[in-house]
Computed example of a mutant assay.
Amino acid sequence: MNKNAVYEELKKNPKNIHFNRLCSAAELFGFRFRGGKGSHRIYAREGIREALNFQNVGGWAKPYQVRQLLKIIDKYNLLKEEDDA
């Protein structure tokens, strides 16, 4: 999966992102699932203070949570990192 393509997909329309797609995107950028309860999933990454808390609402991600991931990607220059593949 190409980080640039995923980033552009999230940025293009944050209101129309499936919950599972958002979780996959977080993992692509190095975040690891750390647990959660009910419809919530928490992701964290070593070296990043902020944790991501995503909520599944009928299979969709909340737009502000998509924007939150995008903000962290920009803040920590995660697009500049080499792809693991």
Rank of each mutant, 00 (worst) to 15 (best):
N4Y: 13
D74R: 12
N77D: 10
K12N: 14
C23F: 07
Q55V: 15
R21P: 03
Q55W: 07
E9F: 11
H40D: 07
P14F: 04
R34Y: 14
N16R: 11
H18C: 05
I17F: 00
A51L: 13
S24T: 01
A44D: 02
R32I: 14
F33K: 11
R34E: 12
G38V: 07
V6A: 02
I42E: 07
R41S: 15
S39L: 02
N56R: 07
A25N: 02
S39R: 07
G30C: 05
K37A: 09
E82W: 12
S39Q: 00
K3Y: 09
N2Y: 07
C23G: 05
A85C: 14
N4V: 15
R32S: 15
K71Y: 14
K11T: 15
Y43P: 06
N77E: 13
W60T: 13
G35N: 02
A25P: 06
F31E: 03
E46K: 15
K12E: 13
I42G: 00
Q68T: 09
G47P: 03
E46H: 08
P63W: 01
P63S: 01
E27R: 10
P63R: 04
N2D: 09
E50K: 08
M1V: 03
R32A: 13
Q65M: 03
P14R: 04
V57F: 08
P14Q: 07
K62R: 01
F29E: 10
A51S: 12
I48C: 05
G36W: 09
A61C: 02
G59H: 02
L79H: 04
A26Q: 08
I48T: 04
